[in-house]
């Protein structure tokens, strides 16, 4: 308890905010790569692959991110793997994001009209060609708005990395609060910074959704 909020505190919070963005990017890229594999596995022609990926998604979606983070941090340390808080948070978020993005993208791939699959098959394209040249280009268009929307969830969820000691925005707020003890003011600032990161993405996602809706109705009337 001492002093007032000064420029040093704000710089520290700013650094935390940058780490929040960094961790979000790590989670988005890692989760995107694994999630894409999950999405493809969920519609695999092999039943065992479909089942295994479905079980993965169910397990992750039935567990709180906080518990996954603790498992990654304390759990791996307890069985002899010493990981830094950045590694633990990055890996846990990757596994978590992958399950959700995988499900979102599976839905998008499956919402490409069935006739497109059949036409591609009728043109004697192989399964890979069908995926790469016909289905995915259309699925990516459908997937963009919900993916941008999910990025808001990712940014918000990185706040949980604070509990394993990773100094992102939330944790830097807690540290500043420990020296100033003005919790209400500091957490209000933190909330505003999170809002400033998330709200533009929310708006962008809504805009994309509206634009897509228009594109679709044009397609239907054509």
């Amino acid at each position: 308890m001492g002093g007032h909020l000064n420029i040093n505190h704000l710089t520290f919070l700013g650094q935390g905010a940058l780490w929040t963005i960094g961790l979000s990017v790590i989670a988005l890229i890692g989760g995107g790569i694994v999630g894409f594999a999950i999405a493809l596995a969920r519609i695999s022609p092999l039943k065992s692959v479909r089942l295994a990926s479905a079980v993965y998604v169910q397990l992750i979606q039935g567990t709180p991110l906080l518990v996954i983070l603790f498992l990654g941090y304390f759990g791996l340390a307890a069985i002899g793997l010493k990981v830094s808080s950045l590694t633990a948070a990055g890996a846990s978020l990757t596994l978590y994001v992958a399950a959700y993005l995988g499900e979102i993208w599976r839905g998008c791939i499956q919402s490409v009209p069935k006739s497109q699959w059949e036409a591609a098959e009728g043109l004697a394209l192989s399964r890979t060609q069908r995926m790469m040249k016909v289905i995915l280009p259309q699925a990516i268009r459908i997937a963009t708005p919900p993916t941008v929307g999910f990025m808001v969830q990712i940014i918000k969820n990185t706040s949980l990395a604070s509990v394993v000691g990773f100094v992102e925005l939330m944790r830097s707020g807690q540290i500043v609060n420990n020296s100033l003890f003005e919790p209400f003011a500091i957490y209000a600032i933190i909330a505003v910074v999170y809002f400033a990161m998330c709200y533009p993405l929310s708006l962008f996602s809504q805009k994309l959704e509206r634009r897509m809706g228009r594109g679709r109705s044009n397609l239907a009337s054509a």
């Binding site: 808001v152 918000k156 969820n157 706040s159 949980l160 604070s162 939330m170 707020g173 919790p183 209400f184 957490y187 209000a188 933190i190 909330a191 999170y194 809002f195 998330c198 709200y199 929310s202």
Partner: peptide, 16 residues
């Protein structure tokens, strides 16, 4: 509410 983390909201209510 939808654009801020739950953890921050809980702390704000708790300390607020």
């Amino acid at each position: 509410i939808r654009n801020t983390p739950l953890l921050v909201q809980i702390f704000l209510v708790y300390f607020g």
